[in-house]
Structure formats: C-alpha cells, structure tokens
C-alpha cells in the first residue's frame, strides 16, 4: 500500500468536548451548522479514507477523491441531518452512509465502464474495519496532542519514555529505559503513568466531541478502549 494522505491528518483540530457537535452539524442555522460539519469531517476524514483504502483496496489518490466525494455528498444531501441518535451510534450511521455512497459510486463507475472499478475486499466485517480505523485515528491524534502538551510543559523526557515504551514496536524493559535515560525504574513507571493518564483524557475528549450524548459517549468510550 502506498503512503497515506496527510489531508485531515495529524494537525486536524478535533472538536472541543461539547456533545452538541452532531446536533450542530444538523442544525437549521447555517452559522451553527458549518462549524459542526467541519468538526465532524475533521474527526472522520482519516477513518473514512482508510476504510475506503482497506475495504475497497483503493490507491491513495482514488481514496482521497472518494473521501472528498463522500463528505461533499454528506453536506449536499444532508446525511448529517438524517442521523437519529435513538437508532444507534453516529459512527455506525456514518459507515452505513459511506457504504451506500461507495456502492452507488461503484455502480456508476461500472455503467460508465470506467477503469479503476471499486472492488470490495473480503476480510473483517465493515463495522470492524471502520471501528478499528476510527480508533487508530483517535489515538494518533491524541498522541500528537500529547506530545505537544508535554513539550509545552517542559515534560519532553516523560514523552520520550512513553514513546520508547508504549509507541515502540518492540519495547525495551523498564530497567533498560531507566539506564538509557539516566533515571530510576520508578521514574519510568511514573512517566508512563502520567503519559497514559493524559492520553486517556485526550482520547475521551475526542470521543465525547463526536457523540450525541452521555449514553453514546459511554458506549463509544468502552468500544474504543476495550
């Protein structure tokens, strides 16, 4: 697979911790609706893009075009307005809209006999793929903010320890890290605990930002951390 896009990437600002982003995106008031829609798109751009790449095995460029096309259609056709929180999680709703959009795109490409026809790939269930990519995207952005926060507060060493342990493919032992950074193993434990605590807070902030209320937030928080 070629490299992922940077659009909607690490610097994309997640919505604040207000449960009203989803309702704002569906508001009749354009002044509320637009920031709400932008916040939702920022939150879901990467999971949607990666879902398209994995499930429909698309190239970077095709996936970007389809992602862009999907969100454009979402705004033009009022997908966000159609969401009913009583029927399930917004994430699931969005994935169903996306599948419908991709299916229509495939039919349209087939009718026009265009090359690059969308091919659905067997494997994990669509829900599972989307949930995994959504989780990955939330954690990635939380880690970016964690790094920025720690550097701003002069806690670069704590983040470095976290990076070498929790972000490493094959982490070293606490003792090894302690000698590498010239600190005690207890300090390694404390640095990791503080970074994990902050990571959890940042992850949950993001989840709360794109859920419609406490009930959905609890379900989504449980799903993302399990």
């Amino acid at each position: 697979m070629d490299a992922d896009t940077q659009i909607g990437g690490a610097n994309a600002r997640f919505p604040d911790t207000h449960p009203s982003v989803i309702s704002a995106a569906a508001s009749d008031d354009a002044a509320r609706r637009r920031p709400g829609q932008e916040a939702l798109i920022a939150a879901y751009w990467k999971p949607v893009y990666r879902y398209i790449r994995i499930r429909w095995r698309c190239s970077n460029e095709d996936a970007k075009d389809l992602t862009q096309g999907f969100f454009t259609a979402a705004i033009e056709k009022g997908f966000f307005e159609a969401y009913d929180a009583r029927k399930g999680a917004f994430r699931t709703f969005l994935r169903v809209c996306l599948d419908r959009f991709l299916s229509n795109s495939r039919k349209s490409a087939s009718r026009q006999k265009r090359s690059g026809e969308l091919i659905e790939v067997d494997g994990d269930s669509p829900e599972r793929i989307f949930e995994r990519e959504w989780t990955r995207s939330v954690f990635e952005d939380a880690v970016v903010e964690l790094r920025a926060n720690f550097q701003k507060r002069g806690r670069g060493l704590a983040f470095a320890v976290f990076e070498r342990y929790d972000l490493a493919e094959s982490p070293e032992s606490y003792d090894h890290l302690a000698s590498e950074f010239g600190i005690s193993p207890a300090a390694v434990t404390n640095y990791l605990a503080s970074a994990r605590r902050e990571l959890r807070k940042l992850v949950l902030e993001r989840v709360r930002g794109v859920t419609s209320g406490d009930r959905e937030f609890r379900c989504e928080a449980r799903a993302i951390l399990k």
Binding site: A193, R197, L199, R200, I224, L225
Partner: peptide
C-alpha cells in the same frame, strides 16, 4: 500510521488504572 500492535498496546495502556500512591 500507528501499527495494529502499537494501537493494541495504547488501548490497554490508556485503560490501565494508575494505582501509584
């Protein structure tokens, strides 16, 4: 991009209770 392996570890790490103290 965070790998599946690191993602799994981060999820566990974010959920681990901080019982220091």
């Amino acid at each position: 991009m965070i790998s599946d392996k690191v993602l799994a570890r981060l999820k566990t790490a974010a959920e681990l209770p901080d019982l220091s103290g």
